Measured scan of single mutants.
Amino acid sequence: MTEYKLVVVGAGGVGKSALTIQLIQNHFVDEYDPTIEDSYRKQVVIDGETCLLDILDTAGQEEYSAMRDQYMRTGEGFLCVFAINNTKSFEDIHHYREQIKRVKDSEDVPMVLVGNKCDLPSRTVDTKQAQDLARSYGIPFIETSAKTRQGVDDAFYTLVREIRKHKEKMSKDGKKKKKKSKTKCVIM
């Protein structure tokens, strides 16, 4: 069974824990209790493949930012979460993405942009803004509501699919490099 290491990042209060708990335990946590770091595991079937999701729910508070490099190193894919009623959390996505790329030393890291709290009427981040940002990053965008469960499975499952595509691409690139290195030079 394939294991996928997913990391949920975003500013404090955007609903990272609520999304994760909704996926794992099928219930909505409405009281806000700032996370330092929590880890969850769940076995699911995605596109006919049974897999184990190892999900790291991270601290959004700035005082825990020193811990970010460590979990970013171990993560295979990242859910970059903002709240649709919090423009600052949307603007912060850029910083999370840049930090992930720096730590992973790669421009090509599996990510999904997630606009959470889409059940709320007080939207300050337009869907088109988020779609445009995701398009500019070359990553999928999904709106979710941890409260109603809308888009929750889709967000995590899409990230797994992005990781699969990335692994497939990397193995193809690896095979191309191996083929090239088999060419021999004969000096007579």
Rank of each mutant, 00 (worst) to 15 (best):
V44A: 13
T58H: 01
T50I: 11
E37M: 05
V9E: 02
T58N: 02
D47P: 08
T2I: 09
L6D: 01
L23V: 11
G12S: 13
L19N: 15
F28S: 04
D47A: 09
T2Y: 10
Q61T: 14
Q22P: 02
E49Q: 14
V8F: 03
D54T: 15
C51K: 10
F28L: 04
I21E: 15
E63A: 07
V45W: 08
I36C: 02
V8A: 05
D30S: 13
H27M: 15
G10D: 00
G48S: 09
E31W: 12
T20W: 01
I24Q: 08
G15Y: 01
V14T: 12
E37I: 03
D47W: 05
G48P: 08
K42Y: 07
G12P: 12
Y4A: 10
V14W: 04
Y32F: 04
D57R: 01
V44K: 13
G60W: 02
P34N: 04
Q25A: 07
G10Y: 00
D47Q: 09
V9D: 04
G48K: 12
V45N: 13
E37L: 06
Y4T: 12
I46A: 11
A11F: 14
D57Q: 00
E3S: 14
Q43Y: 07
A11M: 14
G13M: 13
C51P: 13
T2Q: 12
Y32A: 05
V29K: 09
A18T: 08
V9G: 06
I36S: 02
G12F: 07
D33R: 04
T20D: 06
I21C: 15
I21A: 11
D54F: 05
V8M: 06
C51A: 09
Q43H: 10
F28I: 05
L53T: 14
A11D: 09
G10T: 00
V9A: 07
D57H: 01
N26E: 12
L6S: 03
Q61S: 15
S39L: 15
T20S: 09
D33G: 04
S39V: 06
I36G: 01
F28D: 02
E37A: 06
I46S: 11
F28Y: 11
D47Y: 06
G10K: 01
L52W: 14
L56P: 01
T35M: 01
D47V: 05
T35K: 00
T58V: 07
G48W: 05
T20G: 05
G60D: 03
C51V: 14
N26A: 13
A18N: 15
I46E: 10
V7Y: 06
D54P: 14
D33T: 04
L19I: 11
Q22S: 10
T58A: 06
L6A: 06
I24V: 14
T20P: 03
Y4Q: 12
I24C: 09
E49L: 04
G15H: 00
Y4C: 13
Q25S: 10
C51D: 09
D47C: 06
T50E: 12
A11N: 07
D38T: 01
G60N: 02
T58L: 03
E63L: 04
I55G: 04
K5F: 03
A18L: 02
V8W: 02
G48C: 05
H27F: 12
Y64T: 06
A59L: 00
T2F: 09
S39Q: 09
T35S: 03
Q25I: 04
Q43S: 12
L6Y: 05
E37T: 03
I21S: 15
D33C: 04
Q61E: 13
K42A: 08
H27K: 13
H27E: 10
Y40N: 01
G15A: 00
R41V: 07
V8D: 02
K5V: 02
Q22C: 04
V29P: 15
D57C: 02
D38R: 01
S39K: 15
Q22I: 03
G13F: 12
V44T: 14
I24G: 07
A11V: 14
L56F: 03
E31Q: 13
Q61V: 10
I46H: 10
S39H: 08
L53S: 11
T50K: 12
Q25N: 15
L52T: 15
D30T: 13
L23F: 14
E63H: 08
K5Q: 06
G48N: 11
V45F: 09
T20L: 07
Q61K: 13
K16D: 00
R41N: 08
N26V: 05
I46T: 08
Q61R: 10
I21K: 09
E49N: 10
D38I: 01
V45S: 14
C51Y: 13
E63W: 04
E3I: 09
Q61Y: 07
A18R: 05
T35Q: 01
E31M: 11
L56G: 05
V8C: 08
I24P: 02
D30R: 14
G48E: 10
G48F: 05
A18C: 11
S39N: 10
G13S: 11
L6M: 13
S39W: 05
Y64L: 06
T20I: 06
H27I: 09
G48T: 09
V29Q: 13
K16L: 00
S39R: 15
K5I: 02
L53V: 15
K42G: 12
F28W: 10
D30C: 13
Y40I: 01
L52V: 15
Y32C: 05
L23R: 15
K16A: 05
E49W: 05
E3P: 15
D57E: 02
A59G: 11
Y32N: 05
L56D: 03
T35H: 01
G15S: 00
I21G: 13
G60E: 02
Y4V: 10
V9W: 04
E37H: 03
G48L: 05
T50W: 07
G60K: 02
G13L: 11
E63Y: 06
L6W: 04
R41S: 07
S17N: 01
T50L: 09
E3V: 11
L52P: 11
V44Q: 14
N26P: 04
I46D: 13
Y4E: 11
N26R: 10
R41G: 07
L6I: 15
C51T: 09
N26H: 10
Y32L: 05
Q43C: 08
T58Q: 02
V29W: 08
G13Q: 13
G48Y: 07
V9H: 05
G12D: 13
T50P: 13
D30Q: 14
C51F: 12
L53F: 11
E31F: 15
D30A: 13
E63N: 11
Y4K: 15
C51I: 14
E31N: 15
D57L: 02
E3T: 12
Y32P: 04
Q25V: 05
Q43E: 14
T2M: 12
L53W: 09
G12K: 06
E31Y: 14
L56Y: 03
Y4L: 14
L53C: 12
V29H: 13
